[in-house]
């Protein structure tokens, strides 16, 4: 059996974070799970092609797979101050004079990757809801290339390459906690509503008992659970940088559905 893990910052980081968790799930369920790292853009196509049975993705990809392939919701990841939820922030450099959404007009903006709920969609929706069309009202916007796109957004604003940026609130929180940035460096112009965070899902045709066992193994995980991996005895959640898992309802993702429709994004995109 295979678990497709969406590469968040890089393939290397994904493997490092999720191999111990996968080993734990294998031991708990008595099934030899294989880790399959997948680029975000490729995820829907590779899932549809049957390359993996379980998925670990951001909440927007979950929504796409749920709409298109009836992916079943298993558990939602908890990380950071909002637990199993997260949000998107629009930031500017302190001292730039850009303090309100109105100030965004005519400015240079950097977004996170397009399929990022808290790095693109939430801010895009927030701007539209406040009468600012990102396609016409700002000077231009860009999306960074390569890995660690969210940090590139933050540093892009910090070093003045862009006037404003769309950063996940979680990344701001973690970068501040790590001492990479200071709270005094940025204006947080606006913050979106909170939406579900990264999500585990299962193919619709899998054995229901297996799906339930998988879900239970995740939500029962505590910070003390350990696994032997690569010669070390690791704490499972800590090694994956996760606080825990929670069972949400599919209806908890409705807020994201509304955002995706408003921003004309998949899975509701119309041409």
């Amino acid at each position: 059996m295979r678990i497709g893990y969406m590469n968040c910052n890089s393939k290397k980081e994904t493997l490092q974070r999720f191999k111990p968790l996968t080993r734990y799930l294998s031991q708990k369920l008595g099934i030899d799970f294989e880790v399959v790292p997948v680029d975000t853009q490729d995820f829907p196509e590779r899932f549809a092609a049957g390359e993996f049975e379980f998925t670990h993705t951001n909440s927007l990809i979950y929504l796409i797979l749920h709409e298109e392939n009836q992916l079943k919701l298993l558990a939602t990841e908890k990380r950071g101050r909002y637990g199993s939820r997260t949000s998107g922030s629009i930031i500017s450099r302190k001292g730039s004079g850009i303090k309100t959404l109105e100030d965004l007009k005519g400015k240079r903006m950097i977004f996170g990757p397009q399929l990022a709920p808290s790095g693109f969609l939430a801010q895009y929706d927030l701007m539209l809801n406040n009468g600012i069309d990102p396609e016409t009202d700002i000077a231009y916007y860009a999306i960074p290339a390569g890995s660690f796109k969210h940090e590139k957004v933050v540093y892009g604003v910090y070093f003045g390459q862009f006037d404003v940026g769309a950063a996940p609130s979680l990344d701001l929180e973690l970068m501040t906690a790590d001492g990479k940035i200071s709270a005094d460096d940025f204006n947080i112009i606006a913050e979106s509503a909170i939406v579900p965070y990264c999500t585990f899902g299962a193919r619709k045709d899998l054995d229901p008992q297996l799906i339930e066992n998988f879900r239970k193994a995740l939500v029962d995980l505590t910070k003390e659970d350990r696994v032997d991996f690569a010669g070390e005895n690791l704490k499972v959640l800590a090694s994956a940088w996760i606080d825990g898992y929670e069972t949400l309802e599919d209806s908890d993702y409705d807020i994201l559905r509304r955002m995706a429709k408003n921003a004309n994004m998949p899975p509701y995109q119309e041409f």
Binding site: L172, E173, T176, A177, A183, I188
Partner: peptide
């Protein structure tokens, strides 16, 4: 009314 910035400041102080 800047609660987002206040939360970030708390992260910084928690270090």
């Amino acid at each position: 009314g800047q609660s987002s910035s206040a939360l970030l400041k708390l992260d910084e102080l928690a270090r």
